[in-house]
Design a protein around this nucleic acid. Sequence first.
DNA 1: AAACGAATCAACCGCATGTCT
DNA 2: CAGACATGCGGTTGATTCGTT
Length: 295
Amino acid sequence: MGRQPCCEKVGLKKGPWTAEEDQKLVAFLLSHGHCCWRLVPKLAGQRRLHPYMHGDGSARPPCKRIHLVSDSQSHAGLLRCGKSCRLRWTNYLRPDLKRGLLSDDEEKLVIDLHSQLGNRWSKIAARLPGRTDNEIKNHWNTHIRKKLKKMGLDPVTHQPVAASRADPLQDPQQDPHCDGKASSQESAGYGTGASAEEEALTSAEPKQGATCSASTASAVSPSPCSSSSASASASAATPGGADVDWPDPLDLFQVDAIIDMDWASILSGSGGGGDIGVDLFDQCSDVGFDQEVWM
DNA sequence: AAACGAATCAACCGCATGTCT
DNA sequence: CAGACATGCGGTTGATTCGTT
């Protein structure tokens, strides 16, 4: 199909994020949440925006009608595609992320869940508060897989290697985890085989999610959640390692709390969020929204 | 101290899925 | 209902770091 790419590739930056980009993104997302990721890079460079955006996908505002009057004005935004912003945020900048290696308990849980769900990393990650699918996937491929192999277990089937080799469908020369086709076959197998179990797991997810969502961010000590760890790791990940002027952690937490509010009620004016309930368009005019296209 | 290989992990890519018009 | 679009997911890549010789 003639489907357009998720972003215009021309002129967009790739590769490692700089501290400055991180800062822009964090500051923007903590104060506004996100609406459609495609717009985030553009809006992240703007000075002030109304926090109309949502964190949970509900009450989605009419993003498609948002129209920046000019992209090339004074505030250039981030030269990244929305996809890249989302990835950076979910895998690295999110305040409620745990850093560091997985604990033994977490590792066991991952193994257990993998035996039931296969390579459905996002599902697995959903059961481990503060961990991302990417992190778990990397940890699996670099640590756990080796451990299982050492123990004589097939990392795919979780059965003793001899038993899994007996499977005629499986090419013993090949590591299914390194082969996309094999992996998809394998996950398809899991999909059919573990459906009931998965259903049970999935249905249990909301509870887990509830314990680890925004409240986790606040429950953990402020520093790891907010700028200290984020900035530390961000600068660590930054080639230049430049010092960054991160927002005050306390400010971020106040904003974070606001983000957790019910945006639908905020937008309807009943949120009681003080200046949050002000007219959207007042704020939009600040950043060059074309009101005409909203209506 | 330098060179090399292995390990790690952030980021990218393409496809799948869900939602909206 | 079909097509278009945005987002999410899993696999893969490649730059960087670490360990060994």
